Amino acid sequence: MHVVKGKINQAIDAIKSQIIQVAEAIFDHPETGNQEYFAADLLTGILTEKGFRITRPLGQLPTAFRAQMAIAPGPVVGLLAEYDALPGLGHACGHNLIAAASLGAALGLAAVKDELRGSIVVLGTPAEESCGAKVLLVRDGVLDDLDVALMFHPGDANIVEVSSLALEALEFIFEGRAAHAASCPEEGANALEAVIQLFNNINALRPYLKDEASIHGIIVEGGVSPNIIPERAVARFYLRARTREALNRVAQRVEDCATAAALATGTRFWYHNYEPSYEAMLVNRTLAAAWQRNLQELGVTDLAPASRSRGSLDMGNVSRLVPAIHPYLSLNAGRLVPHTRQFARVVRGEAGRQLAVLAARALAWTAADVMLDRELLARIKEEFAGGQVTK
């Protein structure tokens, strides 16, 4: 195994500049969810040149792709690549580094394909920041044949085990009755007042939430003119909780808040999911332990304890289908807050360059472990089977 990993290192050394160029090219061409044509074209073009068979688009997602190199009978290892940017902020979450690292890992593995068994799959997964393409890909069966799924995320600490919260994205539409706001307001039914009351009701609910539950919302429609009683108003919320069961309870409480708001204002409402639901991340600890051993061999020893993100990941849905990890690697730039311009500046600098290459090595080494160590793969699958019973 050490010989194979040494050869993978040599292969990644040879393409180090390409990994960095890809990371920076994607950074310099930021594209929001499902618009990542430059990134998808760049990645699939390189993978095609290296002998990967490309399937694109996947389902109804034009910027999603699957690149596969079948080597020999054996496990199918998925390397997941994100590449969507944030509106107005660009790559302030470092998805360009995720894409470059998964690409680098795949190319490093391809260079030693004669010594591996199984298949290398790079999955291009767009729109993580918006509509959660991984949820749709799971639904469409694109990942059904994977034995493991691997990716990393940049951050300000090296965290091997990172779990997350389940999420519901709910849009509430209130319908009232328009009227002149000054001369005959009594003839109207104010949908905006209903939305405001919904927010007030949710604020009253907050102290009684548990299971790490949180609710965040915005008003996306609130009327057209101050002298017209708003006949339509719309609010969107993210609801999060530790488990699906806890999240369902929160959703019911929020629906009750909306019912009360509608009754108080004489309006009616309905709601729906405006983005896919995310499941809580289920970390495969056996796979995570293999990742940790590889990190330590690569010289990364400042490892933080396991962490539960207060956010949500579409990787959570993947982790319920196949053994998966979503570790964080430090940019070594002190305290960093994602989704900020400071984070983006660090991603585009030397710290980002070094991290993309380090992550490529760690991903490739961990994939090689899975492809060559039958006992490890058996333990990963045994843990996964047990975890699904108690999720």
Rank of each mutant, 00 (worst) to 15 (best):
V254S: 06
V160E: 00
K113R: 15
A264N: 11
A67G: 05
V250I: 11
S214E: 06
L146G: 01
D256G: 10
N34M: 15
P276W: 11
G386Y: 06
H2F: 07
R293L: 06
H272W: 07
L146S: 04
S330L: 09
A40L: 05
A101K: 02
A166G: 14
F152V: 15
R240S: 09
A39R: 06
P323V: 15
V148N: 02
E168N: 14
S164V: 15
V283M: 08
C184P: 02
E193W: 10
R253W: 06
S17I: 11
V318Q: 01
R320D: 05
A356G: 07
T366R: 10
N201W: 11
A64I: 01
L58A: 08
G266S: 01
A356Q: 06
A67C: 03
V135I: 15
R310F: 08
L109I: 13
L205D: 04
R206S: 04
T267D: 01
N34L: 15
H95M: 14
D13N: 15
L282T: 09
P62R: 12
L331N: 05
A182I: 15
R308Q: 13
V135E: 07
R66H: 05
H95A: 08
L295P: 00
I202N: 00
I218G: 03
Q388P: 05
D156Y: 06
S214C: 11
A378F: 10
I325W: 03
T286N: 09
I228D: 02
